[in-house]
Amino acid sequence: MCDTCGCNITPGNEHLVRGDGRLVKTDEGREAVTVLQSLLSENDHQAAHNRTHFDRHGVLAVNLMSSPGAGKTALLEATIEALGAAYRIAVIEGDLETENDAERIRARGVEAIQIATGSACHLDAHMVHTALHQLDLDPVDILFIENVGNLVCPASFDLGQHRNITLLSVPEGDDKPAKYPVMFRAADLVLLTKTDLLPYLTDFRPERAERYLRELASESPMLSLSSSSGESMEDWLTWLRSEVAAQRERIRQGATLRPAIQPDGIRLHSDASAGHAHTHGHQHAHGVAHAPGGEG
């Protein structure tokens, strides 16, 4: 994370560091310090640690987000059924209360760690790290993190995963991407679930859901499936297989991957290694290493 050297200056905040520079005295003799750190830099730091941990163990970590009841656990059950023989799967479950979801996963013969968040509406990187202490990652190919059912808060917290998947179930209505832009912008893949209900819920138009997604400037794929009827599962399984292969290739090359946009993610963190190598306290250009537009 390059929080320290000035490379996180964007067109939106560059005025803060013009003129008097990064360390000035105000009229009242106060010291003004320009920081420009992500508000979640503590979480982001832990998330980076988690991601290193996943990479070291050869694990693909996938974060599932949706509203409550969109079918995250049912998707996992169907996926375990289809791929449980080919891949070693583990699951971290996030809910406010109960072990219900973890028990459903364990009933399929897959290890599941339940995080009961109490009143917290999202998982954060520290909670996931604590759960990882209970999990032996060595024999795992895919770790699914089933986030708390919530279309708002989970989008803001990097957990260390490689991919974000947002589920949109047919009963919710096709305009969810327009209503929850932060969540749907964070998706590397949008899964339209419960498509077996489309004949009954005729107001829902899959093409309209996709149009709302594109209006968020998202080029992420949108796939449809029904976990209960099993229809169209193959596209999703193909996506997952290709992600496992891509993760293995990244590990072979010593590379890693952050999921689709976390707030300020790409812009702030695309030059992470360079940022840490610099002496703190001065401001300078980084040249072409930044995502376009990241320069002040």
Binding site: G12, R30, V33, V35, Q37, H282
Partner: peptide, 26 residues
Amino acid sequence: VSGDEMLLASLELSQMNSQPVQQQCV
């Protein structure tokens, strides 16, 4: 290019003593 910022932009601090602070900012 703008609109997803969630940043601590700057702080103004008062010192404990009157010594000027030599340390540069983070």
